[in-house]
């Protein structure tokens, strides 16, 4: 996995020295593909590191750049440019997939900002301040027990209508909690976008905690659906 997420792209085209404008992947003046070394996803689309994104605009830009960077267009270019066009296309795809998803976008931005997010960083991250609130744990544990009971009942070929009802109301409840988390994430996202160096760390921390909570809720919704759908 790449760890160089800092933005340090050349500011001008390697071929014609024009300043790179709309996207650092492509020169608007001469149409040459640019080297992609350690470009972050926001930068690839010439976007500021902000969470509110114009999605239709992002999609348009993705298609436009994809067409112009397509390796077929560089079939007769130098091997170096062919390689860059492949790399630029791959980067563009990853960047688009990440930025168009609001949750992946937050996770990515927090990683860029140096916060430890998600499972791959979990080993480094030692305890205590990351313990979720006790009431959430109790809830999660209880629901898991209920799910387990439901699975056992199903295995024995019986159907228990009250358990079914409990599970459905639990699903509704957890989906509601999930949408509350998403609303809070949006609020903190706005705080990030409109904030400055002094206020942004608090927003980032709040978002990291919300993502933790969201992971629990998402697992629960997934598990309930699995049992109900079986």
């Amino acid at each position: 996995m790449s760890t160089t997420l800092t933005t340090s792209a050349p500011a001008t085209c390697w071929a014609c020295s024009t300043a790179l404008g709309e996207s650092p992947l492509l020169c608007v003046a001469c149409g040459k593909v640019q080297p992609t070394t350690s470009l972050d996803y926001f930068h690839a689309f010439a976007l500021a590191r902000k969470l509110q994104i114009d999605l239709p605009g992002l999609e348009r830009e993705f298609h436009r750049l994809s067409r112009r960077l397509h390796p077929d267009r560089f079939a007769r270019a130098t091997p170096q440019e062919q390689e860059w066009s492949l790399a630029a296309t791959a980067l563009l795809n990853d960047a688009y997939r990440t930025l168009r998803d609001p949750i992946a976008r937050v996770e990515y931005l927090l990683k860029l900002e140096g916060l430890e997010i998600g499972e791959e960083h979990a080993g480094v991250n030692k305890r205590a301040d990351r313990q979720p609130p006790a009431d959430l744990l109790e809830e999660v544990f209880e629901l898991n027990m209920q799910l387990e009971e439901m699975r056992m009942t199903q295995k024995m070929g019986e159907s228990d209508p009250s358990l079914q009802r409990d599970l459905k109301s639990a699903r509704t409840k957890f989906e509601t909690l999930l949408s509350e988390v998403d609303n809070d994430l949006a609020t903190q996202g706005r705080a990030w976008d409109e904030g400055d160096a002094a206020t942004r760390p608090a927003a980032a921390k709040a978002m990291a905690a919300l993502l933790d909570r969201r992971r629990y809720l998402r697992n629960l919704v997934r598990d309930v659906n699995q049992v109900l759908g079986a």
């Binding site: 990351r130 006790a134 744990l137």
Partner: peptide, 8 residues
Amino acid sequence: LVGAPECG
């Protein structure tokens, strides 16, 4: 009762 928020 403890939890690992990284993976739920």
